[in-house]
């Protein structure tokens, strides 16, 4: 046998199974973790009652579990207490019953988080599932959802999640969500684009931009969640908001960002 390659360095790659060994870990209905990760990409829910899931994220389950779309029916009361924006309710599924349920999303990293009388705002595409102790609300920031209450939720991210504390400025694409601190504001770093030539450069991109001139700035006390990649996950529809004076953004499409950098809608008269 020619052997030109040494073993990979320790800590690299998955566990190496010696030849002839039992192979990968086999899970059954009793050894699957309860409300914990099976591996970095799969989460096991110990279901006894109800959970809310994003559509199509359940990959397997043991036990007696039914999946209901949201709408009128026996789950009306639960939905009324956990959902406060009917327009995006169609994206969600209620899992009801007893058993172990595995969740995964396109082999992205998955983590669970506990909220204790807390609040957390998260990018809509990253939220996979949550327990009914939490209430889901549409954030005032387009494309984000807010969870309030006590319970557990499961979120996916492109690469592992990093927690940081404000004050901090973050790249818009790396932001997954934030907890307890005030919503962020925009920060523009255009100080090097000065004078007439700088203005031309900013408007046309001639001379090159670093691509990092725009950030989100967080202040106050709390936690900011970042993913270790700048590849966004597809968002789900967070629903639109009926336009009325005083709404941020414009009347046509909140997610569109209103009109111009100021995001001002038309005057109410």
């Amino acid at each position: 046998m020619s052997q030109g390659f040494g073993p990979p360095p320790p800590g690299f790659g998955p566990p190496q199974y010696p030849p002839g060994a039992g192979g990968p870990v086999v899970h059954d209905a009793h050894t699957l973790p309860a409300d914990d990760n099976v591996n970095p990409y799969t989460f096991s829910v110990h279901l006894d009652g109800q959970w809310f899931l994003q559509r199509g994220k359940m990959i397997a389950y043991y036990g007696q579990i039914d999946f209901h779309g949201l709408g009128h029916g026996p789950l009306d009361r639960l939905v009324a207490s956990s959902f406060h924006s009917p327009l995006h309710a169609a994206q969600w599924v209620v899992a009801q019953g007893r058993g172990r349920m595995l969740l995964a999303d396109r082999a992205f990293d998955i983590n669970s988080y506990d909220l204790d009388q807390g609040n957390l705002t998260i990018r809509s595409g990253n939220l996979l599932a949550f327990s009914p102790g939490l209430a889901l609300k549409q954030s005032i920031i387009p494309g984000f959802l807010t969870l309030i209450g006590t319970g557990k939720f499961v979120a996916a991210s492109n690469g592992a999640v990093v927690f940081v504390e404000p004050p901090i400025r973050v790249d818009p694409q790396a932001l997954v969500g934030w907890a307890d601190c005030p919503s962020p504001c925009h920060h523009y770093d255009h100080s090097y684009l000065r004078g007439v030539l700088g203005g031309v450069r900013m408007l046309t991109g001639l001379g090159g931009l670093s691509g990092e001139e725009h950030q989100f700035e967080f202040a106050g006390a709390g936690q900011v969640l970042l993913q270790s990649s700048e590849t966004l996950m597809d968002g789900i529809d967070t629903g639109s908001v009926p336009w009325e004076p005083g709404m941020p953004g414009g009347p046509e499409g909140m997610a569109g960002g209103g009109r111009g950098p100021g995001g001002r809608g038309p005057l109410p008269f």
């Binding site: 990968p24 899970h27 591996n39 799969t42 396109r106 082999a107």
Partner: peptide
């Protein structure tokens, strides 16, 4: 796509 989870059925 992602490491497979092996589940025993009894």
């Amino acid at each position: 796509a992602g490491p497979a989870v092996v589940l025993r059925v009894t």
